[in-house]
Design a binder for these strands. Structure first.
Lengths: 362, 362
DNA sequence: TTGTAGGCGTTATCAA
DNA sequence: TTGATAACGCCTACAA
């Protein structure tokens, strides 16, 4: 009774009572060893098996409805064909977030194309994400996509110390050996500001995003680069710290309007669309005409921005594409053994709408 | 050299070159067997281990940064703490879909709360979803959430034949042994139509959703129930087949307006928000006044619906809650061994806005 | 060309 | 209270 599990009886028993049948049953029914079944059904080893055996095994596998267990396979060191996505957010909705939503769409799309499953790890904050790091690395997935951690998160050095492939999405800090896929914050911001300068503006304000996001500093730098390239002075009174939220744009616009007339800028660059939306609302509330009195442009685009009054000039970035490229880069690291440490910075396209005009003549 | 993996050398080797260290190393370092380590660290068996041993093992585990492999655990028959979500869609965006988006938010939220990972299986259509069914059942997750399959999908009988816990989300067909979580389509539709009747309407049209969705028939039935309860005739010329899309609402509104004046309804019930949006647009385009000439109400609510001109009266359903309840029901089946076959139908709340008025007096 | 045997990391069942 | 030992399902040397 030792090899009972090889008998027909047990095959029948398994089929009826358990979920799935294993390589054992296929081997027994086909009259070959488990190794042979494995060779036939997996990877590129079919060639090692003689044709009659091969087709018999195939036949039996289909008859029995056999399908290998990814878990067992994973344990044996094969890839799980699964991409993990770690995101920490304190938002009520992931899907309707203008950043997370499109990025997730891109990730899902690319994973579908590459026959990868997607495991989502959602956390309230980066502390708990860090605490749960071991869970993300418990074998469930072959690699990790980290979405936009703050600059101070310990999670990155921890992951860097480990050996699991991962990359940063929506953050492009420069750290040796760290892969990331992001939009090209600096250059995109520069282009937007250059457009304002080309329209004749000399005093241009910037509303910044969260100070602890890498992107904020990069966008500010782009703003500085544009000014410098045109020989315009960098005036700190025109730099408004803030956060990537509508309320921040609103508040900063109110502050901006309190500046004495001669110090007031003629154009405003908002670090993202939500800030721009808030700023526009404040300006409208105060009766400031856009673009007649103040031109407004921002980085980042979404449907709402195009349907404001006036529609906003903005750098259109494809966050969806960021998600797709992130997946492809990670898969390269996992399966093709590409080295980590690559930086992919996607460009934007400036969309001219009606919120920018030449400065008013004094 | 046989038990080499138990030596300190190998421990060091593993730590540096491999991803994670296993229960072996902990056992070796703590001077106990693997079984004991397992007892201490997992489940509710710590009590079986003597205190000094227990704390020593704990200590070593922390020192070594040990964390169990979910994959190995899964192979050994323990739950993966992972919920699978299968969705087939031909949409460009999952996250911005007014149904999928909120449902996904609810699922993620509930999974986070219950410390479950979420694995997403996305397919283009239900044929390929069916074809990949074995992959969803390859051990990766403990149970499956199926989102809104069409009435004809073979995937449900296949899953019903298997033993893996699963349930239907956003579909509430009545099949013995089949669990589902959905909104209460029939009753919600009935309530909306009853509201129209209460306003004095006698001729009420309905714009239906996709014929192969369970919900369409249920909503139509609710419409019929409301008419019947008030003794109003069911007039097939007021029933417009269609799909859950804006274009369908637009087209059907055009058809409706072609009816001879005496046959024309005074109120319109749209089976979902998108249909209502399309219908309203067509009516506005043709200069038909809502609600003066035609009252309009729909099932399903989203932000767009509240900001139309006029804002639409609608049954507000919490799709997010559907997602949450689905997760909780599934987890009940998986972990608490609750029986399958439960039907959870969530109610809606009628939100009165300005698109409904009493019928015009002839 | 095929089979045997050992291992992947964990848990469960015995026995000590 | 603890430790061997045998699963779990698959993969892969190595041997035949």
């Amino acid at each position: 009774m030792k090899p009972i599990s090889e008998t027909g009886f047990i095959v029948w028993f398994r089929r009826e009572s358990m979920a799935s049948i294993s390589i054992r049953e296929v081997a027994a029914r086909a009259g070959v060893s488990r190794a042979t079944v494995s060779r036939v059904l997996n990877g590129n080893t079919e060639a090692l098996v003689a044709e009659p055996t091969r087709s018999r095994v195939r036949q039996v596998a289909i008859e029995l409805g056999y399908h290998p267990s990814a878990v067992a396979r994973g344990l044996a060191g094969k890839p799980m064909n699964t991409v993990g996505v770690v995101m920490a957010y304190d938002l009520p909705s992931v899907t309707s977030d203008p950043f997370l939503g499109p990025v997730l769409d891109g990730i899902l799309e690319a994973n579908k194309r590459h026959h990868q499953k997607t495991v989502l790890f959602t956390e309230d904050n980066w502390q708990s994400a860090f605490a749960n790091l071991p869970i993300y690395c418990d074998g469930h997935c072959d690699g990790l996509l980290l979405i936009a951690p703050r600059t101070d998160s310990e999670i990155i050095p921890a992951l860097l110390r480990g050996s699991r492939p991962f990359l940063l999405l929506g953050d492009s800090r420069e750290v040796p050996g760290l892969s990331c896929v992001d939009i090209d914050n600096g250059n995109i911001a520069r282009e937007v500001v250059e457009h304002l300068i080309a329209q004749g503006h000399r005093r241009i304000a910037i509303f910044c995003g969260n100070a602890d996001f890498t992107s904020s500093a990069q966008r500010l730098q782009g703003y500085r680069d544009a000014l410098e390239a045109s020989g315009l002075p960098y005036d700190e009174s025109l730099v408004f710290p803030g956060e990537y939220w509508e309320w921040s744009g609103y508040e900063n616009a109110e502050k901006l309007l309190r500046l004495p007339a001669e110090q007031r800028p003629t154009a405003l660059f908002c670090s993202n669309g939500r800030i721009a939306l808030g700023a526009l609302r404040a300006l409208t509330d105060r009766g400031v005409l856009v673009p007649q009195e103040l031109s407004l442009a921002c980085l980042g685009d979404n449907m709402e921005i195009a349907s404001t009054q006036p529609p906003l000039t903005a750098a259109h970035v494809s966050l969806r594409q960021v998600g797709e490229r992130a997946v492809e880069t990670l898969l390269g690291q996992i399966h093709a053994g590409l080295p980590s440490g690559s930086r992919t910075l996607l460009p934007a396209e400036l969309v001219l709408r009606e919120s920018v005009a030449p400065p008013p003549s004094r």
